[in-house]
Design a binder for these strands. Structure first.
Lengths: 385, 385
DNA sequence: TTCAATTCTTGACGAAGTTAATTAGTGGTA
DNA sequence: TACCACTAATTAACTTCGTCAAGAATTGAA
C-alpha cells in the first residue's frame, strides 16, 4: 500500500476534487472546466494515481464525430480510504463508515446513558472501535473521524461552544475524541455537515449556491453561497425556523413570535392536532395517520404548517437567490411530507419574488444515517481542500 | 505622469487593496495580515509607488516599547486617479466624480426627459462631460465610469437584463455608455453598488459578512458573505422587502402577502396614514410631520412599519448571521428613521435568534449622492481585483 | 559607541504552472 | 494498407510568483 496523500497545490485540489465530485472525467475536460493547462492536470493527477486514489478508466465514450485519440477518464478509487462519521444526539450515537465518495459501507448505533462529555467520548470510542472492526480494511485505511453535533460549533478549533441538547459549553471535542480513538477528528454543526454532504456528494453538486432545509422536530437550514458554506459571524446561521411568518400569533420557545418552528415544528404541530381533535394522547405518528385517514381538521393543521414552511423558504430564496433548495425531513417530517407538499409549494411560489421562484425545489428523504454520513463528508472535505 | 497601473498578481491585489481599504499600513503589517512574506510586499508595492498610486509616509507612530527601525507606512495617493459614478433613476441622473478612496470631489444632477436607452445614454454622456470639465485633472486621470441601475443587472456582460422602473429589457448599457463617453464602463445593481461602497470604503470595512438595508420607497438589502457580494443565481438576491412578516394581511404588488414593503414601503405607509387621518391629500412628508407633531394614530402606523422592518432584519440575521447590519434611508426614509427606530430595534432584538442578536446595527443616513458614489466604488473595485 | 530591536531590501532559489513540441491512439480514406 | 486528420496525453524548457536567508537601514537604550 503506497503512502497516504493529501492535496498540496491549487491544481491538485482542483483535479482531485473534480474527479471526486464530478465522477469520471478525462484530463482535457478537467483542464477545460478548471481553467488549468492540460499539462498541469497531467502533473497533478500522477501522484494520486501512484498513491492509489485515482485510476484511469478504459476509454468508453466516443470522443467526437470524427476521430482522435480516445480519452482515458480519471476515476476515484473509492475504497482507497475510509472515513468514519458520527452524529451525536442527546440520547444516541449514529455512526457510519464511508468510502471516499461518502457512501456508507458500515453503520452502527449506540444509545447514550449520559450526555456528559466524558461519557459520550467513551461511548464514541467504543462505537468507532466496533465500526472499524467490521472489516480489516477499515482499520487499516481509515484515519479520519467526523463528528456532527447540533448547536454552536467552532470547527477550526474543534470546540463545541454551546450545545443546548447536550448541555455542553466549551467542550474541546476534537481533542478528546482524537485522544480516545487515535484518529484525526473534525467537528462540525450537524446541519452544516449535511449541507457539505449535499454539496460534494448529493444534490448540491454543480450548484455554487443552494440551500438545504430540514423539516423535523425543528426547522433548520444550511446555506451554500459562492461555493462556501455560510457560517455566521456569531456562530448562528441558517435559522430558517425562526423567521416570523405567522404574525404575532404563536409565541416561540426562542422568545420570538410567529416563528415557522412554532407552527410547523413537531411539538406545536402535535399540540395543534390535539387541540382540534380534543385527543390529548396523540403523538406525531397518530397525527399523521389521522391526516392520511382524511380528518379534515387535522389536515388543515398540516396545511398551515406547509404554508408556513413555504413562506419561510420563499423569504430565504428572496434573500439569497439559491440555485436549488433541497428539502429533507427526518423520520416524522419525512412521513408527513406529502401532507405539507401542496401548501408548501403553493406558498413558496406565491411569495418568491420574481426570478427567485425559478429556483428548483428537490424533495429528498434523508435517514438518520445520512446525518452521520454528513459528518464523514466534512472529514473528507477537510482532508482534500 | 507615469503610466496607469492595474493589479496583476495575487500579492499586488492584496497589498494595494489593503492600503486602499485599511488606510496607511506598514509593509510588515501588510505581510502579517495577508500572510505574504515581507519580501513579497516590498516587491508588490514598488510598481504602485513608481506609478504614483502609493506613497511612503514619514514614520509617525512609535514602533514599540523598545526600539527598532521605524516603519514607513504605505498610503494611497487618492488623487492619482478619479472615477465617475452615476446613479440612474427613472427621472434623474445623479453623478459624482470621486478620488481613489471613493470620496466625492464633484457632483451634478440631470433630469431625464425620457427613459429610452438612447435618451438616457445621451444625457449620461452630457453629464459625464460636465462633471469631467470641472477640473482638468479629472479629464486627464479619469478612465472609468460606474453605473448603478435598479433591477436585474448582469455585471459581467454590462447588460441591464430587466429594469422595471426604466422599462428596459436586455439593454447593453456598458457598451452604449462606453461608446458615448470613451470611458471603461461597469454596470451594477444600485443596492449592490451601495453595498460595495460600504464594503471597501464605509462601515463594512473589516467585516467579512455584513448586510446593508435600505429603507425608502421600497425596502432593499445588499449582502456580503465570506467577503463577497451575494448575487443570486437567478439575478434575485437581497429582497428583504418581500419577507412575509405581516401574516396574510396586506397584499403586496409582488403578488405575495404580508411583505415588509407592503407595510413599511413609502406608498403603503402613506396610504395607512391617509386612512387613519381621513386626509387623502397627505404625502410622506406630511405624514412624518404629523407623527413628529405627536399624532398618536399616525405614530402607530410608523410603529407598525418599524416593527415589520425589525422582524425582517431579524429573519435575515437568523439566516446568515452578519457581523453588522447597516441601515440606511433615502430622503423620506431618513427623515422618518427616528419614528421607526424604537420599534425596529425592539422587534429585531426580540426576534433575533441567540447570538444573532449580537450583530451590530448601524444607522447611517445616505444621500442620493451616495448611490452615485456606490457606482464609482464598483468601478474602483473592478479595476483593482 | 556598541548592541538589540525592528523594518525594509536584495538576490538566490524553488515551486507551480504555462507554452510548445512530441508522442499516443483512434477513425476515415486513397 | 498506408496515410492523414484529429484529439488526448506527456514531456521538457521556460516564466512567474513568492519564499528564504542574509544583510542594510534606522531607531532607542545600555
Amino acid at each position: 500500500m503506497p503512502p497516504r496523500l493529501a492535496v498540496a497545490t491549487r491544481a491538485e485540489t482542483a483535479v482531485f476534487t473534480m474527479v471526486l465530485v464530478q465522477g469520471p472525467v478525462s484530463r482535457v475536460e478537467i483542464a477545460r472546466r478548471s481553467g488549468l493547462s492540460s499539462a498541469a492536470v497531467t502533473k497533478a493527477a500522477r501522484p494520486f494515481i501512484e498513491a492509489g486514489y485515482l485510476e484511469e478508466l478504459a476509454a468508453t465514450e466516443r470522443t467526437g464525430p470524427g476521430a482522435g485519440r480516445p480519452a482515458s477518464p480519471l476515476a476515484i478509487r473509492p475504497d482507497r480510504e475510509f472515513f468514519t462519521g458520527v452524529k451525536i444526539t442527546d440520547d444516541e450515537l449514529i455512526g457510519v463508515v464511508t468510502d471516499l465518495r461518502a457512501r456508507p459501507v458500515a453503520s452502527a448505533h449506540r444509545r447514550l446513558a449520559t450526555t456528559s462529555a466524558e461519557g459520550v467520548v467513551e461511548a464514541l470510542a467504543e462505537l468507532v472501535g466496533e465500526l472499524l472492526a467490521t472489516d480489516p480494511a477499515y482499520r487499516e485505511r481509515c484515519h479520519s473521524l467526523g463528528l456532527a453535533v447540533s448547536g454552536d460549533v467552532d470547527k477550526a478549533h474543534g470546540m463545541v461552544r454551546y450545545s443546548p441538547f447536550l448541555g455542553w459549553h466549551q467542550v474541546p471535542l476534537a481533542r478528546l475524541a482524537a485522544e480516545a480513538t487515535g484518529l484525526s477528528v473534525t467537528v462540525e454543526n450537524d446541519v452544516k455537515s449535511l449541507t457539505v454532504a449535499e454539496q460534494w456528494f448529493g444534490d448540491g453538486v454543480g450548484a455554487s449556491s443552494f440551500a438545504l432545509v430540514t423539516v423535523g422536530i425543528g426547522i433548520g437550514c444550511g446555506l451554500v453561497v459562492n461555493d462556501r458554506v455560510v457560517a455566521g459571524a456569531h456562530g448562528v446561521a441558517g435559522e430558517i425556523g425562526h423567521i416570523p411568518v405567522g404574525g404575532d400569533e404563536p409565541v416561540c420557545h426562542c422568545g420570538g413570535s410567529g416563528c415557522v418552528e412554532a407552527i410547523a415544528g413537531t411539538a406545536p404541530l402535535v399540540a395543534a392536532v390535539r387541540a382540534v381533535t380534543g385527543d390529548a394522547s396523540m403523538d406525531i405518528d397518530a397525527a399523521i395517520d389521522a391526516a392520511h385517514a382524511g380528518d379534515q381538521a387535522v389536515r388543515e393543521v398540516f396545511d398551515r404548517a406547509g404554508h408556513a414552511i413555504g413562506l419561510a423558504m420563499a423569504a430565504m430564496a428572496n434573500l439569497f437567490g439559491p440555485e436549488r433548495i433541497i428539502v429533507t425531513g427526518d423520520v416524522g417530517g419525512l412521513a408527513a411530507y406529502d401532507l405539507f407538499e401542496e401548501h408548501l409549494n403553493r406558498s413558496f411560489a406565491a411569495q418568491a419574488f420574481g426570478a427567485a421562484a425559478d429556483c428548483r425545489l428537490l424533495l429528498r428523504p434523508r435517514t438518520f444515517e445520512q446525518w452521520a454520513r454528513g459528518a464523514a463528508a466534512v472529514a473528507i472535505q477537510t482532508l482534500f481542500t
